[in-house]
Amino acid sequence: MRTNYIFKLLEKGERIDGRKLDEFREIKVLPNAIERAEGSSRVIMGKTDVIVGIKLEIGVPFPDMPNMGTLKTGAEFSPIAHKDFEPGPPSEDATELARVVDRGIRESDCIELEKLCITEKEKAWDVYVDVHIINHDGNLIDASSLAAVSALLNARIPKLEDKTVIRTEFTGKLPVVKKPITVTIGKIMNNFLVDPTKDEEDIFDSRLSVATIEDGKICAMQKGNKTGLKESDVEEMIKLSTKKAKELRKLL
């Protein structure tokens, strides 16, 4: 019934909460939400609430990139966030979310990983980006990606004394040089929607998440849901996403 009401409104180009089709909900970006993490940010988008924490640990570089640190992204759908989230190993959706957030950061080269090498082939910083969902009311991809970049921007590198990490002192900021922004566009009937609530995204025919960098280049994409897209749909969705990304970038 609620679904029907959402459909009925969309036929008239209206949304259940009164927003325009391409309008975001109220967004709050709260950096440094977790004092004890190396970097963190909480993003509240309407009723969606996510926290991203950054931890730096000493790891071994990959053999094919012996002088680079590594990026490791995880996402947990904590059972506090929605009645359908169960405790246990990450679900398919949580894994997809982690990978989409990861791709936006990785492919934009926003972290200068070569500056995170400590000893070639032996030691480098592992940058852990952990997404924690507090309340799920849709659009987790955009909220989490925004929180991740915001958290990276305020992350610091802890001091290293011999082999010990001193977490209370820092040698500098994490080298973050770009601000990739992901905006997901949903398609219902012939409408393109920005920032869906959970009720709205549950009835999407399809969705396309597009990550863009400041210079307008696209650095990652992900299509979701069951219905196919025409070439012209993709063009329109990318155009809208790129335009809306500029709005989000201003919040950082």
């Binding site: 004890r36 926290i51 924490g53």
Partner: peptide
């Protein structure tokens, strides 16, 4: 009941699970 620590809640990252 489930008590869980977020990965970033302490100095050494907590492995999820």
């Amino acid at each position: 009941c489930r008590y869980n620590m977020a990965p970033f809640s302490v100095d050494e990252r907590v492995r999820p699970g």
